[in-house]
């Protein structure tokens, strides 16, 4: 489903070149979940952004669901993100001016793939039934992250990319949310690639890989 071949990416800061990814190879099967570990600044988030088409690689190729991400136009990438991907961030990225219910439905509405039964199930599983008419700022951080998860899964994407999804929560909440998240991703039949620093969170995933010196290594 996702195949990365010889991927390189570098940044330039004040004329100093910094290689973030160098000749990275990676494969991910449909329905699997992978934890992406690594030190701060090792390029984990960069890899996620490249997969999502938010940034362009210097060289190499990313194949996702038969599409060569790096060759696609901006609008084709937007279409791909809308229909096949979901992104979950530490900062939740909820639309502050829409209600919880509107936020949950948003991406499903964009790709016109809306299943009311599944929405009911998600809302119930995530404990948001009584929060639907509220605005994001009226919720706790844990609740906001649950809304972000519901939004990411309602349209049943092929791949969920998560960047420290529980990084803003305390340990107990993190474990609870992560349990729900990984379970719901499996129920949706989606794949999950999650950046994390936490071994405890990584334990929820099928595989764990470490990014070091621009390359990935499997953690046994």
């Amino acid at each position: 489903m996702l195949s990365i071949d010889n991927l390189s990416k570098s940044y330039h800061y004040a004329d100093v070149r910094q290689d973030v990814l160098s000749g990275l190879d990676f494969d991910m099967a449909a329905g699997s979940s992978i934890a992406l570990l690594g030190e701060s600044g090792s390029g984990k988030s960069t890899l996620l952004h490249l997969i999502a088409g938010l940034d362009r690689p210097d060289s190499g190729e990313i194949l996702f669901a038969g599409h060569r991400i790096h060759d696609e136009s901006e609008s084709a990438l937007a279409e791909m993100r809308r229909h096949r991907l979901s992104l979950v961030f530490q900062q939740f990225h909820l639309i502050a001016t829409l209600t919880v219910l509107d936020n949950i439905r948003f991406q499903a509405a964009l790709c016109q793939r809306f299943d009311p039964d599944y929405e009911g199930e998600l809302v119930a599983r995530l404990g948001l039934v009584t929060q639907l008419d509220k605005y994001p700022y009226q919720l706790s951080r844990g609740q906001q992250q649950r809304v972000a998860i519901a939004r990411a899964l309602l349209h049943k994407p092929q791949l969920v990319l998560a960047d420290e999804p529980t990084g803003n929560l305390d340990e107990a909440s993190s474990l609870e949310v992560m349990g729900l998240f990984s379970d719901l991703v499996k129920r949706a039949g989606s794949s999950l690639l999650m950046v994390t620093h936490s071994q405890a969170m990584a334990a929820f995933m099928d595989r764990r890989v470490n990014l070091h010196n621009g390359r990935l290594a499997e953690i046994e």
């Binding site: 999502a52 937007a78 948003f106």
Partner: peptide
């Protein structure tokens, strides 16, 4: 800008 960013992350094209 956050909303615009979210919309783009969720697959809204620039022209839209």
């Amino acid at each position: 800008r956050a909303t615009l960013l979210d919309l783009r992350l969720m697959g809204c094209a620039t022209h839209q």
